[in-house]
Design a protein around this nucleic acid. Structure first.
Lengths: 159, 159
DNA sequence: CCCGCTGAGTCTGTCAATCAGACCTAGCCT
DNA sequence: AGGCTAGGTCTGATTGACAGACTCAGCGGG
């Protein structure tokens, strides 16, 4: 059993994910896109993100392959662009649901949260379950352990 | 059916969650605590977070009730403090797992990710499943819809 | 043909946060 | 007394967020 203090965690994918998702407003932009808001000004009006920041976030998400910029044209208007999720972007749904779950439990106003996620087919609220590959459902969060994976490296001695 | 553009989303709990979790390094601090690293200097050495920022993040997480500061004393040393998860903090496990799942799929080095989460009892890798309250497993992410919740408010007209 | 509107930005200056590196401090050990 | 260590604080430089003004292309109305 390796001491976690001897591991180099520079290539940790959680940190890499947060480099993309952790900039201010990025998750809010994604929430908008998941809600079906796809246009610059609609997002800006709903969220009050500064224009510059919104432009930067959208460009960054496109660059990282989370969103794609699609041309569209409404009758009698010139061509514009809207932002849509890529498959990589759709894969973020669990992150959104997990954040909403935690926020709804611990941070909501007394009257309740303003957004819930429901199953399209039956209308029931959606939640996440933790499972292991052997098929067990994991209710006790203490039963989940972090373990060194295949990309594990050791740290050099300059502690 | 209400137009999402008419909704006020200022009280969205996802945005509130990101106010706590979205500051730079916060999630990395949490990853450390979930990994069992509980002391200031251990975190600093592993993660290379600037001291000041680490101090601020730990204080912020304590203030928000995600971590608690526990005194401890090793024999022959003076009293010190370590940081441990509260129940509210433990509830963030799905967020960590979701981020790690996405990162491991889309952002890992070719040799693989450095950290995996496994089931303590059987050693098998852990993943999240999306379920609805009616018991359906939701595989198609397009089958999840955001819906106005009990805390929904309308936006005023100053669009 | 000129005018103004609209969506989607860019530009500018201010203010707050992050960063690296030096400095500080309480209590233990020799 | 002097040094070491964990866990911080202080300082100055860089980067990022922000509000508000400006730009620009193309359409529709007069």
């Amino acid at each position: 059993m390796v001491d976690p203090l001897d591991l180099d965690v520079d290539n940790c994918t959680i940190a890499r994910a947060m480099e993309i998702l952790g900039e201010k407003w990025t998750i809010v932009v994604l929430r908008e896109v998941f809600t079906g808001i796809r246009r610059f000004d609609d997002m800006r009006v709903r969220t009050k993100i500064p224009r510059q920041v919104l432009a930067n976030r959208l460009a960054g998400l496109v660059e990282h392959g989370v969103l794609r910029r699609e041309p569209y044209r409404e009758p009698g208007a010139r061509e514009r662009h809207e932002y849509r999720l890529t498959e990589k972007g759709f894969d973020l749904y669990p992150v959104l649901i997990a954040l909403a779950g935690w926020g709804n439990r611990h941070l909501a106003d007394p009257e309740g949260p303003p957004i819930e996620y429901v199953h399209r087919d039956c209308g029931a609220k959606v939640h996440l379950e933790t499972h292991c590959a052997a098929g067990h459902v994991i209710d006790d969060r203490r039963a989940v352990l972090p373990r060194p994976g295949p990309g594990t490296r050791l740290r050099d001695k300059n502690r």
